[in-house]
Amino acid sequence: MAANPRFPKLPHALMTLGVICLLVGSYLGLFVAPPEHYMGEVQRIMYVHVPTAWNWMLSVLFAFGAAMAFLFTSDFKWDARLEAGLEVGALLGFLLCCQGAIWAKPTWGVWWDWDPRLTSTAVLLCSFAGILALRRFVDDPPKRAVLCSVATIIAAVDLPIVYFSVRWWNSLHQMQSSPATVSSQFHLPLRLNAFGILFLMSGFIAMRSRIASQRLSEELAPPPQEFAEELA
């Protein structure tokens, strides 16, 4: 079978694997695992919220790595990967806040509060949205790449703050759970969905950076002969 450039094999395989993991994990989480002792059925949103949180942090880390790699190498393939990381990071961050609000209303009693964990997460989500807006404002590819890389590195400072917020300050959000604080019956759906979102996210990033690098190569290509003469 000839390789189809519009449907590359690696992202395709990753996304398929991700969807399979998510289907099996969500089935186990919704129908096989028991409800939580105090929270009851509401706790099942954990099987998407926690994997989303882990992978959102990974996507921010990926964007941070791509930004550093671009500034270090000046290779535009890293700018394309940065664009993909920023978009997928913004998507996962948005999903994370929505799922969190849905879980918070029945358990905490409120959709949202300005707790350190929630606030620092919102700051990072807004920074990513802002950097994505910045990408649309700057037309010159080298200038755009440098500006977005610098902004991403500075925005990523918030990632360890999000992680440690529940330890440094008192907060409404509980501390990180560990396998010891979560019943073993909840582990398998949680892990399957974590890998599911990881594969899906990796597929998205691979696909999105291909699109970005195609657009970049068009932007960076020298103008066709007739235009070059006109410009001269």
């Binding site: 409800p35 105090y38 905490w108 509980q174 501390m175 759970s177």
Partner: peptide, 19 residues
């Protein structure tokens, strides 16, 4: 006028006898 519940990081399945 605003009451929020803050739970800890423990998630437990009900024990066999409690179902």
């Amino acid at each position: 006028d605003r009451l929020m519940v803050s739970h800890n990081n423990e998630y437990r399945a009900p024990k066999a006898g409690e179902q």
